[in-house]
Simulated scan of single mutants.
Amino acid sequence: MGRLAAFALVAVGLGATTGARAEIQFCNKFPQKVYVAIAYPQADQSWISRGWLEIDTGDCAEFDSALHPSAVYYRGESVPYRNASGASVTRVWSSSGRQFAIWEKDNFHYWNAQERVLNSTLADFSLLADGLASDASVTVTFEEDGIHTTTSVQAPHSHTSN
């Protein structure tokens, strides 16, 4: 899957964030590079899908830090690799139920992504979070076993004075 460097996507290392700001971050513990696409709703009830965010093993990266959607779906795909039997495989993290437009061959940014757009393909995405506060931070980690993901949602602490 030849994908170019992510456009309009900002890579951030672990612990490189400061202050209380929202982020949608993906971390990769899987032994192969993982590409991530996300989909999120617009005010007019249409959806946008974007990809591919490239994450090397052991790294974390976030999508555009200005992004504050109320709901987020994601799809992860590993680079093709050889399994123990020597067969070429690609690991995909998604669940059936919700499909959005993707472009397998390169980066994409689709409006009305709930429908097939241009040369796109509709593909399954997993729900990351729904009903997110605009200042919540969400992290998904693709685990080493290639099956599981770990998700954490953090809302900033509110401060009150006496």
Rank of each mutant, 00 (worst) to 15 (best):
I24F: 12
S134D: 07
L127T: 09
D135G: 06
K105A: 15
R82W: 01
F26V: 05
Q99N: 01
K33E: 06
L67S: 13
V140G: 03
N83Q: 10
S161Q: 05
R82N: 08
P69G: 13
Y35G: 13
H109W: 13
F125S: 01
N112M: 14
S49Y: 08
S94G: 06
R50G: 00
S85Y: 13
S161H: 09
S46P: 09
E77I: 08
I24T: 08
G13M: 10
V12E: 05
S120P: 02
R116C: 05
G76F: 01
S134H: 07
E23A: 03
S161I: 05
S126C: 04
Q32F: 11
A37E: 05
Q45K: 02
L14K: 12
G97A: 15
T139L: 11
C60R: 02
I55P: 00
G76P: 12
Q32M: 10
T57G: 07
D59L: 07
K33L: 13
A133D: 14
L128T: 02
Q42S: 15
F30Y: 06
W103G: 00
S49K: 14
H148M: 09
D135T: 10
A8I: 02
G58A: 07
Q25E: 12
L122W: 10
A20F: 04
L67C: 08
G131W: 04
N119P: 03
T17M: 09
Y73Q: 06
H109M: 13
F125Q: 05
N119Q: 15
K29L: 06
L9E: 01
G15Q: 06
C60T: 00
I147Q: 09
W52D: 02
P31K: 04
Q45G: 00
W52A: 09
F108G: 07
R3F: 00
I147R: 05
A37Y: 14
W52M: 08
R91S: 13
Y40D: 02
A136D: 04
A71K: 15
S95C: 12
T18A: 03
E23F: 11
D44P: 04
G2L: 08
S95E: 11
S126R: 06
S94P: 06
L127P: 02
V153Q: 09
I38P: 09
A11Y: 07
V36P: 10
P156V: 08
T18F: 10
W93G: 00
I147E: 05
D56T: 13
A39K: 02
T160D: 13
S65H: 06
R98S: 03
I55T: 03
S95M: 14
V72K: 04
A155Q: 07
C60F: 06
